[in-house]
Write a protein that binds this DNA or RNA. Structure first.
Lengths: 143, 143
DNA sequence: GGCAATGTAACACAAAATATTACAGGAGGA
DNA sequence: TCCTCCTGTAATATTTTGTGTTACATTGCC
């Protein structure tokens, strides 16, 4: 399977905040327009980003979403905020290997450590990229 | 989301072949018993492994699945055989970013390269592990 | 020919992601 | 104060993917 689009949507949201903060009122409706999904989807993801401490929302104030230190947010911060993988791990294991089979009995022993290492290096790779490392948004001077 | 259990099932299958080849008749029914899933699931995955050149099936011969050079098969070989990720990539991108928004217009430019690199290093990590690098199956001398 | 196993189609079901409508509640501004 | 805008969240629907199951044609050994 693929990592859900919640992740790219969340990065898109943060890039919008970086770009528009102070210039436009950033509402879920506004973000939905830029991203091309329903505003409720945006609000749910915003909730997750808020829970992770990446953004904060001043309620009632005609739609302002303010953030903090977004440049140093890593892709892992975003990923772990919106993806519910943490509990089960990246790899989905078949649930009922047969303990009466010598292979079935040992399959977790055979695989768990290595799969965990692969997951760890994947997450480490995500941690090594900060938002400021991404290609900057090309400024459109005609607008 | 998670990588589907097809991957761990496929590794389990290959470990069974390594362990039982020459000792037991290896049928989809037999494998289903060790792995704890339906035999049709096994047959479907066997088809994929066969298409990837990892195993071969001598049909009709009272259930024998023979393989080749399994020790040097990498986890990536198995992963790419059973996971349909190749076309879309590891990350699912939201489909309709707004080209009229400066961020929406550039979001692919901002992210695609970096996400591709992360996917590449993930796959490279999988390529670095061969089946013979996994923990060996503990031999049960009482059987 | 009979038997055992594969290869696949067809269908059912569950889980997750995504979309949509609805509405209660907070806060600023007239 | 009242109006309006926006958030937060529930409820529900739809789609997609993964998984389970039954059925059956086909293959090749005995």
């Amino acid at each position: 399977m693929q990592i859900s689009s919640r992740f790219t949507i969340a990065v898109h949201i943060l890039e919008c905040i970086k770009y528009f903060e102070g210039r436009n009122a950033i509402t879920s409706e506004f973000l939905a327009g830029s991203i091309g999904v329903n505003a409720v989807i945006i609000r749910r993801i915003i909730s997750q980003l808020k829970a992770a401490g990446l953004v904060s929302v001043e309620r009632g104030k005609t739609g302002i979403i303010s953030a903090r230190n977004l440049d140093d947010v890593t892709l892992y911060d975003v990923y772990s905020a919106v993806e519910a993988v943490s509990s089960d791990g990246l790899f989905h294991f078949h649930a009922n290997p047969n303990p009466k089979c010598p292979v079935g009995k040992n399959i977790h022993d055979i695989l768990d450590g290595t799969l965990r290492e692969i997951q760890n290096s994947f997450e480490e790779r995500m941690r090594s990229v900060k938002l400021k490392d991404l290609k900057p948004v090309t400024l459109d001077i005609t607008e």
